[in-house]
Nucleic acid binder design. Structure first.
Lengths: 152, 152
DNA sequence: CAAGCGTGTGTATGCTTATGCAGCTGATCA
DNA sequence: TGATCAGCTGCATAAGCATACACACGCTTG
């Protein structure tokens, strides 16, 4: 008998590697890998792992690992993104410019949108720059400071 | 009897505004709003709308609108958003202004971004307005016409 | 008009997932 | 040691969702 932790790890692997879309399918897959367990347990495991069931492109179902972003508080997500990828945060007039590693700006823009910050009107992400438009000049400075505080 | 389109619009509203987590709950909510329909139809509607069922923070379920990038065809997504939520599309210089129902602009902006239209440099979404910046004046007119064709 | 087709819907039902309950196991503590 | 408790699991079943089928309606075409 595998431990709960091992089993859940296995579930992650199976879900990542194959296209299983039902819990009974998962039960079978796990049995083939030497882990005998029932659907009820799988149900609870999937919940604990944050695995989601989505439609795939052909209309069938598929379990997928929840993305990091979906699991987190938006502010935490934003904080991590800023810590990891931002290279500069500047305020200019009512615009905040967030410079980031090449290719990371769209994701950065997304988490910034997710924040739902009241002073942020919206943002435009290029490849390595996010332009955040705020309500006014003071708001831009405040938002920039906020981003810097978050890890930018 | 409401049209399918109206009903689906209503479903979006209900899903956005309240925390309904079952299809029968949705059936009740819609009945209260004067739309009599069965669970089977809701099931099909949710699929067509790309609505997802997720755990909320307290362990219960909740339906949520899928994000733009999770939908298959960006043009279809954009078209739906425009049809349902836009109230005006205007071109001014190299800017296209898309006016929309209050609160819908951020979503609208996202699907417009998703389009990856070559003449669109980026956009900024407020609460009920999306500002789309295009390469030049002619592009703005072309893009505005394109949006109008899509259902704006 | 009639036939044929596509779309939308409800009904009934099957499929899938969630969960109450009880039993087991291992840890802790007096 | 025995009592107690928490965590994990399976079983049985409830809750919830998807869909095959049949029918109705509107459109098109000959």
């Amino acid at each position: 008998m595998l431990s709960k932790r091992q089993r859940q790890h296995l579930i992650r692997d199976v879900v990542t590697a194959s296209r299983v879309g039902t819990q009974s399918g998962l039960v079978r897959a796990l049995r083939d890998l030497g882990c005998d367990v029932t659907q009820a347990t799988i149900s609870r495991d999937l919940r604990e792992l944050g695995v989601e069931r989505k439609r795939d492109e052909k209309g069938g179902f598929r379990y997928v690992l929840g993305t990091a972003e979906e699991r987190r508080d938006p502010e935490v997500a934003c904080s991590r993104m800023l810590e990891e990828f931002s290279t500069a945060v500047l305020a200019a007039r009512n615009i905040v410019l967030v410079k980031s590693e090449p290719g990371t700006a769209p994701g950065m823009g997304r988490v910034i949108d997710e924040l739902g910050h009241p002073d942020v009107l919206g943002c435009v992400a290029g490849d390595d720059t996010v332009l955040v438009v705020t309500t006014d000049d003071a708001a831009a400075r405040a938002v920039a400071d906020y981003f810097i505080g978050l890890g930018g």
